[in-house]
Structure formats: C-alpha cells, structure tokens
C-alpha cells in the first residue's frame, strides 16, 4: 500500500513497471515450458511404450522375421561402422580446412567466399545430399572402380563406402566450424611469441595451437557423430538395406559388413519397421525409436560433459 508521506513508496508508474517486468519474466518462462514440456512428455511416452522390448538380447541379437522379432545388433553395428568410416574422411579434411581458415587464410574475398561456402553447405537439405551421393558415388565412383575389376563377383556395390562418403560431406561444415572456433579461442599472442622464437607457422600450430584446442575440436567431432548416426535420407539410396543376413556368431558378428556391400543401419531400420511392415508389434517400433534416442543423447551428453570439463581446466 502506498502512503502519501512515504517518499520511497512506488509511484503508479513504478508499480506498473514492476508488474510488467514480472509478467515478462513469467510469460517468457511459460514459453520455455511450452517448448520443453511436450517434448519431455513425448519422450516419456516413447520410453514407456518401449519398455517391454528392452532386454539384453534386444541389443545383442540380430533382427529376425522382418524386424518383428529379435533385436537391434545388426543395425547398431552398421551405424557404428557408418559413423567410423565417414569420420575417417570428414575429420582429416574438416580439421585441416578449419586450420586453413583460421591460421593461413588472409582476410580477402576468397576467404569470405569459403566462409559462405561452409554455411551454405551446412544448409543443403539432407535429401539433396542423398541425390548427390547417388549421382556422384553410386553411379559415378563405383562404375569407375568396377572398370578395373574383371571378376563380376568382386565388383563393388552401393554400401558402406558410398554411404560413408555421402555422410562425410554432410559432416564437413560442422567439423570445419567447430575446429575454426576452437583454434580462434587460442590467443594470438601465443602464436606471436612462437614466431618471435623462430618457430615456423606449422611448428607453432603443432606445438601450441593444436594441443590447446584439441578439446574443442573433439567436441565438434562427437557432435558430428550423433548427427551421422541419425541421418536417414542420405543413406536411403546409397547403400542402406533392411533385409540382410548378418552372422549371429562371434567374432564375425563384430565386423559383419564389407565396405562394398549393403549394410543395416539404425535410422533406416527404424524408418522401415515403423511405416512399411504390416503387423509390426508396437513395442518393437517404440523400442527401436527409444534405442535411437538413447544412442544419440548419450553421444551428445558425452560432448557436453567434455566441454564442461575443458571449461574448468583452462590453461590460461
């Protein structure tokens, strides 16, 4: 209550101001809640329905009867190899490209053009990447290789190689951007100090800049792992398969796919069993989706944990 003699009492304007501030605060908080609550509810719903499917065998057995029974081993290991193979290409090229942009490139229109190229590449829709992979790798690269293989049985087909290359192109911008950011967080004075000591540009990068930005680069790579594992469209026409014989015994089970043959993958498996197989038990659909979510979220949590650890272990 305002008192006429109290000089510190809020005027009507000030009272309104306080009210609008509180309204703004709770209004925007409500927006956050409206975004997060439905998603959390959806996730809970999925895990609730997936629960009957979960068991150790579900993760260690191969799918059987068109995915209606068995487990997820084949798709899981397929996604694992897809990610590894794509990183083998994308990490060296992406990291070196980030080094170029941050350490070597001069400030001119060419560098700006490359920068726009990176953001544009990041914005290319995944289905366009799929068309590119089909045209460039499946119908371009494979016939080129097969020309040198006489035995028709040895010829290469769309498979791990073509799918990984397609995914690798998609991962590039993320790795380039995170490398560039990690490198630019190393102060310029360190580089100058090294140059003054007669160290060359590359020596400086190798001994000071890279060791101190490795964590940031690694965070970016882990993020691209989760991206690669979840992509579906780019592997639709470039090598993913659904019905495929996968060995059930160790050790063949650990490396069941040849690079030149089709493979199973989590994202593709989920796509087929949820929409294209009739009579698919509900818990198998939800189980596969939940496993996918678990996989992605754990990889991303790893990246977040690493970033927090790095922030606390700053060297300067």
């Amino acid at each position: 209550m305002t008192h006429p003699l109290n000089p510190f009492a809020a005027t009507r304007y000030e009272a309104r101001k306080a009210r609008t501030t509180i309204m703004a605060k709770w209004g925007t908080a409500l927006a956050c809640l409206m975004l997060i609550a439905p998603v959390l509810w959806i996730l809970a719903y999925i895990f609730h329905h997936a629960w009957p499917a979960f068991s150790l065998d579900y993760f260690l057995l191969n799918p059987s009867d068109k995915g209606k029974a068995g487990g997820l081993w084949g798709p899981l290991i397929g996604s694992f190899y897809l990610v590894i193979c794509s990183l083998c290409v994308a990490v060296p090229v992406g990291v070196l490209s980030g080094i170029y942009l941050n350490e070597y490139a001069k400030e001119n229109w060419i560098t700006r053009a490359i920068g726009v190229g990176v953001t544009s590449l990041a914005g290319v829709p995944s289905i366009v990447h799929a068309l590119f992979g089909l045209g460039a790798f499946v119908l371009g690269l494979l016939p080129l290789i097969n020309r040198f293989i006489d035995d028709p049985l040895q010829r290469m087909h769309a498979g791990l190689l073509t799918a990984s290359l397609t995914i690798a192109v998609m991962e590039l911008p993320l790795i380039i951007t995170s490398t560039r950011e990690a490198l630019s967080s190393v102060p310029k004075t360190f580089r100058e100090a090294c140059w003054n000591l007669g160290a060359s540009k590359w020596q400086t990068i190798r001994t000071i800049v890279l060791p101190n930005s490795l964590g940031g680069i690694l965070t970016g790579i882990i993020l691209s792992v989760s991206r690669a594992a979840g992509e579906t469209a780019p592997i639709l026409f470039t090598g993913a398969a659904f019905s495929l014989y996968v060995p059930e015994t160790f050790p063949e089970k650990l490396a069941p796919y040849a690079v030149s043959e089709p493979f199973l993958a989590m994202a593709y498996h989920l796509k087929i069993i949820m929409a294209e197989i009739s009579g698919m038990p509900e818990h198998m659909k939800f189980g596969c989706a939940a496993a996918m979510i678990l996989l992605i979220l754990s990889v991303n949590s790893l990246s977040i944990a690493l970033r927090m650890k790095l922030r606390n272990a700053k060297k300067w």
């Binding site: 004075t189 360190f190 100058e192 100090a193 090294c194 003054n196 000071i208 101190n212 060297k315 300067w316």
Partner: peptide
Amino acid sequence: FPLPVGLPL
C-alpha cells in the same frame, strides 16, 4: 614485447 606471454607449457 611489453605484454607478458607465458606459453601454455
């Protein structure tokens, strides 16, 4: 140079 720079080593 005037700004002290210890390398992160």
